[in-house]
Write a protein that binds this DNA or RNA. Structure first.
Length: 268
DNA sequence: CGCCATGTTAGAGG
DNA sequence: TCCTCTAACATGGC
């Protein structure tokens, strides 16, 4: 379920203990989750030392000492945790290290993916701009929005356009920008584009600072759930104007908005 | 039982 | 070609 802030929080939490270790083994209990397949991943990672841990969009990226990379996508319910004591539920894969440590990949729904590649650039080529990166300027977002005529929310969820946003933070960013999720992307007033860009970065930064959003068994330790303004708050008063938050369906995703702060026809 | 779920993709139809 | 919607993946909580 993690989006960019949750993945970033996982990266930061794992980095110190993971980087520098050498992988001794890889076990995969649900073969479809390993790309291209479990054996290729095993051959690719065994014997390799992890030289760095970073994030690209919602992918965790472990750099290996031969220039290849191990990528993990948590999708809806994936988790990474160190082994110790009794084994947690839903362990789908595990890496063992030369010092005896074990890192577990747990994933109730089995949507997560583990990939080994010698071509990181190629593997991530289809991803759009990093919303916290230097390339995410108001002009860049303006170009992305005006080139298309799509509903604003599905466009922002499209990982090939902006990489890392998910259902929570799109709703939150749109509320902070005062934009309706169904508004056509090429009809966003120019001044609102800059506000949207700033809203996206601000909400992502705040969420990272609070270690992400926790609201069920999947992801713990975050504190952003207490700061959400619309997501999961339907029926509750808008924290800006008091109007009840409304839930609608947009592109098959639950969508939350304030009808007053986010009018269908923005003023300017 | 039915509906919902922090994600992504393939395919159909307009 | 672009856009939208459905189904699918697979499981658990309410």
């Amino acid at each position: 379920m993690p989006e960019l802030p949750e993945v970033e929080s996982v990266v930061r939490a794992l980095r110190e203990r993971l980087v520098g270790r050498t992988i001794a083994g890889f076990e995969c209990r649900w073969p479809r989750q390993a790309l291209p397949d479990p054996q290729e991943v095993r051959v690719g990672v065994c014997g390799r030392r992890i030289t760095g841990l970073s994030r690209r969009a919602k992918w965790l990226v472990a750099a290996l000492d031969d220039g290849s990379a191990l990528l993990v996508h948590l999708r809806m319910s994936g988790r990474l945790e160190w082994a110790g004591g009794t084994e947690p539920p839903h362990v789908r894969a595990a890496w063992s290290f030369t010092d005896g440590e074990r890192l577990l990949f747990c994933d109730a729904r089995k949507f997560g993916r583990i990939m080994h590649t010698r071509d990181l650039d190629g593997a991530t080529r289809g991803l759009g701009v990093e919303p916290l990166g230097d390339g995410f300027t108001p002009r860049a977002l303006e170009a992305l929005l005006s080139r298309r005529a799509r509903q604003l929310k599905p466009l922002l969820l499209d990982q090939s356009v902006v990489a890392g946003l998910g259902n929570i933070y799109v709703d939150e960013a749109l509320h902070r920008a005062g934009l309706h999720p169904l508004l056509r992307s090429d009809r966003v007033p120019p001044r609102r584009v800059a506000r949207l860009r700033n809203a996206i970065r601000q909400v992502l930064r705040q969420a990272i600072r609070l270690n992400g959003t926790s609201f069920d068994w999947v992801y713990g330790g975050g504190a952003m759930q207490g700061r959400l303004r619309v997501y999961g708050r339907d029926g509750k008063p808008c924290r800006t104007c008091g109007t009840p938050i409304v839930a609608i369906r947009v592109g098959q995703r639950g969508t939350h908005l304030c009808p007053k702060c986010q009018p269908k026809r923005p003023t300017a």
